[in-house]
Design a protein around this nucleic acid. Structure first.
Lengths: 349, 349
DNA sequence: ATGACCCCTGGAACCGGTTCCAGAATCCCG
DNA sequence: CGGGATTCTGGAACCGGTTCCAGGGGTCAT
């Protein structure tokens, strides 16, 4: 209700002095500043944001786009962003943009053009040419999380390396029949580096001379998705692998549940490794590569703020380290099991 | 870049006429309107939202507060809200407010006062006296989802009835030792009607003359939380119940996994029923009470829009129906199992 | 004593729209 | 043909802040 004019009047100064006193820019004597502050507090003055934005061109808001919310990774990133923005008193405008959806088109065509935020954090978004064009036209800083470099600012784990380490861990335990579970054939639609993880798996298999036996079984990137695909994969004893790399923990956990249902003991007869260190990983004793998406969200905000404070600041590409966390879902290959498919522990296919 | 003055000039009219033509209010001849529209399109004109807000007092934004994001219910509600707002070209400002957190205080003290949104949707929030006061001072429409009546506008399932139906289902199958699993003692901190669900369970037990054997085992309202509590509860054969009501599906699924680990067959030796119809329910054959939080989110937006269109519109209290979905986690009580704890199928404690 | 410079303050312009108001043109009806 | 209602348009005020600019007073060095 009370405007800055009211505050100024109460403090016995002009609007301009009141403004300077409250924003802290320009010369104001200490005594005057205090008087203005007291008056503002007494009146419960809160600046009208639209008026401030209109003249300063800053909205104190950052936009966040993500394809989905009900997956652990995205929810965690979002919470991290939220925390970091709260500290800086920024608002967060959220836009859902599932791949190939009308919502995604709307976001890029209309909402971006409204420029209601000072910068954008794109989580798990791989922009196509048209979208990239809109992003450039947007003209404000953009930082990517969890995958593709939208701008040049980005933060993620090294997905390829993570998958390679996961695969090498299994190979080191003597496994030769290792399947990569989850995601679409080319990593599309999954929108968070599933394609690069698959590439990491493939290169690890190739380096071990197992290129020919590399196998990718597709599934939705969810726990039920992993479960369904694993039931099918593990159901047939003749093609059953001795180990699985899950594209993420949700899929890996789904596979563990499938194995239990089928009476296949983990890790004795089947080793499973995931990527994420999901909240469920501990409960299922899942060996996995840890990442902390919450931190990634915070880091993204940090990067964005640097860019906002100084538009000429250099861009950054942050890789979060992803240490291997060994629990109890992986074990040395079981000779009996591998014998069935004719590969000894020392064989190299 | 181009302002409405540029559009007006290009169309050969005044600013005011251009404004009327574009907003569609007031008299403008059809021919002029078309000329203005064409000019706006040619220049790629997009109105500056802060200027519009400043003069109209509307922000075209709604605020959403929720205590958490990485739980299915909240993520689903949020997606529903998102969808509905997108259709109306509204922006969504998200605020995380875990119970008793600094973020929650910030939200109520500072962000609410900024009035950067036209209305608020509070999901799973039980405001205390101070918070309620701030909400009133906010002076704009508020609608609650999933529990407590923040304003008078609210949408949720009838939590008490849902829990009663779940419990009755088990009682109807002959179970007498039925435990309610999950949540804090008085339903606090869980912030989505866990307290009322517990009350529903208690009243069903009372009506069946089993008041004395009603038991509430606490746990965090997550799958690992339910798992941990169930391992402990089911570990001791002497106090093991024959059936469980989970405060929500996540907890119920955790309990099913715990039972499997302990070698207790579900549903033969233990019946489990949940509330939610979570994405995982099908995978675990969980009998549950269905709710569709996505729809609840949409409904909340609808309610808010009514209130925005007409501030004097009557308030609404929407209850979504929650049908029982019978899958394969519940079965008639096993006489042998109940015999162990000395209660026959016909006994009444 | 006279600038040069810094500190402090108020008046006025400005950000980019919407809306009020007055006036002109057209229409309809008596 | 006169007059009131209706349609259309432009000028100006306004929303609520920030910022530019000019000016007064004090300090310090020349």
């Amino acid at each position: 209700m009370a405007g800055i004019a009211d505050v100024a009047r109460a403090a016995g100064v002009s609007k301009s002095t009141a403004s300077r006193a409250l924003t802290g820019s320009g010369y104001v004597s200490a005594a005057t500043r205090q008087r203005v502050r007291d008056a503002a507090a007494a009146l419960g003055y809160v600046p009208t944001t639209s008026a401030v934005s209109l003249v300063t061109g800053r909205t104190q808001t950052v936009g966040v786009v993500m394809p989905s919310l009900d997956r652990w990774f995205f929810a965690q990133v979002l919470e991290g962003i939220q925390d970091a923005l709260l500290e800086r008193r920024y608002d967060l405008a959220l836009y859902g943009a599932p791949p190939e959806s009308a919502a995604r088109r709307e976001m890029f065509e209309h909402f971006l053009a409204r420029k209601r935020f000072d910068g954008l954090i794109a989580v798990g978004i791989e922009p196509n040419a048209r979208e990239l064009e809109r992003l450039v036209a947007f003209g404000k800083p953009v930082v990517a999380v969890g995958g593709y470099d939208v701008g040049t600012n980005a933060v993620s784990i090294d997905d390829e390396a993570a998958a390679r380490i996961a695969t090498d861990h299994l190979l080191g335990l003597g496994h030769r029949e290792v399947v990569f579970l989850g995601g679409a054939p080319d990593g599309r639609h999954t929108s968070f580096g599933a394609g690069r993880r698959l590439a990491g798996y493939r290169s690890a298999m190739r380096d071990a001379g197992l290129e020919a036996s590399a196998r990718h079984v597709q599934s939705e990137v969810t726990m039920p998705g992993g479960y369904g695909a694993a039931v099918e994969l593990l159901g047939d004893r003749r093609t059953r692998p001795t180990a699985l790399v899950g594209v993420c923990d949700e899929v890996a956990v789904g596979a563990i549940i499938a194995a239990r249902r089928l009476g296949i003991r983990v890790p004795e007869r089947l080793s499973v490794v995931g990527i994420d260190d999901h909240a469920y990983a501990d409960m299922f004793s899942l060996t996995t590569l840890q990442q902390r998406p919450h931190q990634q969200g915070r880091a993204a905000v940090q990067l964005l703020m640097w860019q906002l404070d100084d538009p000429d600041a250099p861009a950054h590409r942050l890789y979060e380290s992803s240490p291997l966390v060994v629990r109890n879902s992986t074990a040395p290959v079981d000779d009996d099991a591998s014998a069935i498919i004719g590969v000894g522990p020392l064989g190299t296919a």
